[in-house]
Design a protein around this nucleic acid. Sequence first.
DNA 1: TTGCCTGCAAATCCTTTGCATACTG
DNA 2: CAGTATGCAAAGGATTTGCAGGCAA
Lengths: 159, 159
Amino acid sequence: MVSYTYDELILYFKEVLKDKNLKYTLQREVVLKILYENDKHFTPEELHMYIKKGFPNLNIGIATIYRTLNLLEESNIITSISFGQSGKKYEIAIKPHHDHLICDVCGTIIEFEDNKIEKRQIEIAKRYGFFIKSHILQLHGICKECQTKLKNTKNKENN
Amino acid sequence: MVSYTYDELILYFKEVLKDKNLKYTLQREVVLKILYENDKHFTPEELHMYIKKGFPNLNIGIATIYRTLNLLEESNIITSISFGQSGKKYEIAIKPHHDHLICDVCGTIIEFEDNKIEKRQIEIAKRYGFFIKSHILQLHGICKECQTKLKNTKNKENN
DNA sequence: TTGCCTGCAAATCCTTTGCATACTG
DNA sequence: CAGTATGCAAAGGATTTGCAGGCAA
């Protein structure tokens, strides 16, 4: 699923760091590792908690989380997005493109890929002389399971 | 382009307000009017400036802007989105669905609609038994103008 | 007239920055 | 060893909230 193995990603990250005269630190590695292994969106705060729990020996400050996320985003290794009332969320960017079905009830994220949509996007961009570097496609709604649950709840209410 | 005329939108807004036992005020009207007439994305700050300039007699505070935007978003009359380093931007929601081409260099947002993509999304959702309520499609990259500018810059550097 | 709204300013929340120490290369 | 990175705490910016007077219904 992920186009870079973890080791490849680390190698790539090290190159980026060298280009910018920056150093490879444990904190930077851990942030990237978490985002790579957990294929989901994290807010800076969530990521901080997650790391504190998973790496109790590593004393990492929230400032470092922010600094690292900004660095990774500038380097196009991760991307961020926010919609509605939610805060900014980050996820790994370097993998074959996939899109998301997001259940607004339980938060489940289903990933999918679709060539027809990808092709059509390129056609549209051409129309505007636009050069596409990446895209975000999220379908929001209610997943199968939650639809069932909601139906059951309604039936109970009516009895 | 907009599916509600302004008058229809106002009527709809008044209904929403009545449902929530809220009042129809000049400040609320002006915020909605600006968003309706200017078919683009505003940050709260931009909107505030725009209103102060366009309605010098109306003394409107930034707090009211925020309160009104939140009210309109909860009521699904406007939507907000943010990506990359940019802050949250609001736009009118009550119009036929459209998607965005976003230039990551200059921030320009081009809107488009595409039936083929919309239809395909429904097919995909069906496959997962997923009920779609809304979607977000953003194509990120570099717009025509910025591509030209970047080329010129490069040429200069090479001379 | 009642009770929601507003502007203002204070408070809060999120993110960034300055600084002294710790670490990478 | 030089120079960057880090944690901490303070600063900065964005957003929300409390309050007293103002306005819609």
